[in-house]
């Protein structure tokens, strides 16, 4: 178990201090930088909170697409880390797409769309809401 308060809570609190206490006291030309910093903290907090789950899902999806299923942990070869596995599989998929072997492939399309959605959920969840309203 992580020490409490954990990193997510600390970032949330730091962000509140920045926006509620510091920002109003800053000269207006520094407001933009302060808001950038607050946004960076929000992204880092969401990434920390989500943990490994989004990358495990991505790794598994890539593994299935590329026929690289391992019994215990699809997509993940013996000694490599999750990030290394995602890198390796992404390179393979990128090369197959570029070579024309995956044209209009609905499975690839679905996995890539889900991957973009998962990244957006951490980097800019507001854009996700806007999209839902469009539909």
């Amino acid at each position: 178990m992580r020490e409490r308060p954990d990193g997510v809570r600390l970032l949330e609190l730091a962000r509140e201090v920045l926006l509620d206490e510091l920002l109003p006291a800053l000269p207006s030309e520094l407001g933009y930088s302060a808001r950038l910093a607050a946004n960076a903290m929000a992204i880092a907090a969401r990434e920390l909170e989500a943990g490994n789950a989004p990358r495990e899902i991505e790794c598994e999806a890539l593994g299935h697409l590329l026929g690289d299923d391992h019994e215990a942990s699809p997509g993940l070869a013996n000694t490599e880390t999750l990030d290394e596995a995602i890198q390796r599989l992404s390179w393979r998929l990128a090369a197959e797409i570029r070579a024309g072997g995956r044209d209009a492939d609905p499975g690839v399309f679905a996995a890539l769309t889900e991957g973009a959605r998962a990244r957006l959920k951490i980097a800019n969840p507001r854009a996700l809401l806007e999209h839902k309203n469009d539909a």
């Binding site: 930088s33 950038l36 992204i43 209009a104 399309f109 769309t113 957006l120 999209h131």
Partner: peptide, 27 residues
């Protein structure tokens, strides 16, 4: 920090739009 956020925030949103415009039925 400005450039760092540009590199993190925009690509997934743009990728989603690219995919939306090039869905399998658009080939």
């Amino acid at each position: 920090l400005d450039l760092a956020l540009t590199g993190r925030v925009y690509p997934p949103e743009l990728e989603r739009e690219i995919l939306h415009m090039t869905a399998p039925e658009q080939w």
